[in-house]
Nucleic acid binder design. Sequence first.
DNA 1: GTGGTCTAGACCACG
DNA 2: GTGGTCTAGACCACG
Lengths: 131, 131, 131, 131
Amino acid sequence: MVLFQITPGSDVPLFRQIIDQVRGAIAQGRLSPGDPLPSVRGLAAELVVNHNTVAKAYSQLVRDGVVESQQGRGYIVASRREIYTKTERKRRVTALVTPLINEAITLGFSPEEVLELVQRELTKVSVDSKG
Amino acid sequence: MVLFQITPGSDVPLFRQIIDQVRGAIAQGRLSPGDPLPSVRGLAAELVVNHNTVAKAYSQLVRDGVVESQQGRGYIVASRREIYTKTERKRRVTALVTPLINEAITLGFSPEEVLELVQRELTKVSVDSKG
Amino acid sequence: MVLFQITPGSDVPLFRQIIDQVRGAIAQGRLSPGDPLPSVRGLAAELVVNHNTVAKAYSQLVRDGVVESQQGRGYIVASRREIYTKTERKRRVTALVTPLINEAITLGFSPEEVLELVQRELTKVSVDSKG
Amino acid sequence: MVLFQITPGSDVPLFRQIIDQVRGAIAQGRLSPGDPLPSVRGLAAELVVNHNTVAKAYSQLVRDGVVESQQGRGYIVASRREIYTKTERKRRVTALVTPLINEAITLGFSPEEVLELVQRELTKVSVDSKG
DNA sequence: GTGGTCTAGACCACG
DNA sequence: GTGGTCTAGACCACG
């Protein structure tokens, strides 16, 4: 099974797609705290992207406390620790929720349909990941 | 009351913030079909941005069928009509849902908490704004 | 062979002429899905217009699903997908048909002649470009 | 029966809509050579537009040989006389046909569908108008 | 080297 | 007074 998949044709930057894939893998429980991430160069080769792009993605994940650098021995999934305050975390999520709702409603979806869409996507999430 | 607010320092482009503000005002029923939008130059002055930036935001909203241009008399909120196929509308919304969930879960929120956050934001939506 | 040609003196805006040229090249099969478009700055230099003008044309084509942006690697012709409802697509075409007919008839053309003119132009369309 | 109808909310300028309506009335035989047009001020009042707007439309129609000014006694539909060469008339119509086809084809219509749409609109045209 | 965003400012069209 | 288009030029993001 392939762990990460990117779409080079998308308008989402490659490094952000990689970040998203790592977050997604953790959210879905395919990666757990302590698990090693693919090496920077290995993943770069596999995805056929520049290794700087992978490095950039990993370093942002480190900055956000999602993964940890094991100096010289690669990266692992961080044990969950909250580096952001509750307020900050809520702010970050709300910053994504609001535009989603505004777009959906003005596209003609009803509130119920929006909720349904979110719910359906949430079923893909592993319950274990929230540990 | 101020209708639109933007954050100049944000990584979200100014014109996109304006688009979101307009969509939000409509979704929340603060603006209804037929209501005039602030004039391009007037809003530009108020937000302290270039008029081209406001013009860009407005013209994208026109292309999405959300507002209408009234030659020489400015812009108004369009009456609701669906111009995109169901597939396209779903594609657009899903593109916003997935990263939201990945971010939220890896920040430590449970699926239930995510749903709650979405639900709370949805209560701000006007009943009139939908279909 | 020159791919795109514009008429600077025309009353049709430059960015709209560029849009039409791209659409024409696709309709006639001179550009196929996956083919790269000229770079924004390159085309701007060739047509002796500002790069913003080309960027505006390209971004509207993206919004119409006709071309795609490939981050850092420029634009390509999109594979065909329909994003607009049948109603919207008809509305757009009809908006162009009516004035054409009124102009043609009052210029002295008979309905048959108008049809002939349209038919002749349609022979330039590539069979591959449809459906 | 109302002779002319305009849509103030459209993005087509009012004076151009009036031109189009007059041309349409002639094309459909509701107005014939020698028939008087509504007075500038009368039509302005009826359409609730500035009389300068109507005057501008009429003067462009005069320039194109479609109507004639009867100094002080208003305007009448001109007897058909060709003020443009065959080449020029073809150039004008083709300038409208090409973008129509390019738009239609890249929106996903087949050449046959385009032809059909044009044909359907042409059925509204009176045969007498081509005299 | 690719595109994306933004500003400052001009000039024009419409009404 | 309203918006539409365009240029010149800057600065940044991505790879």
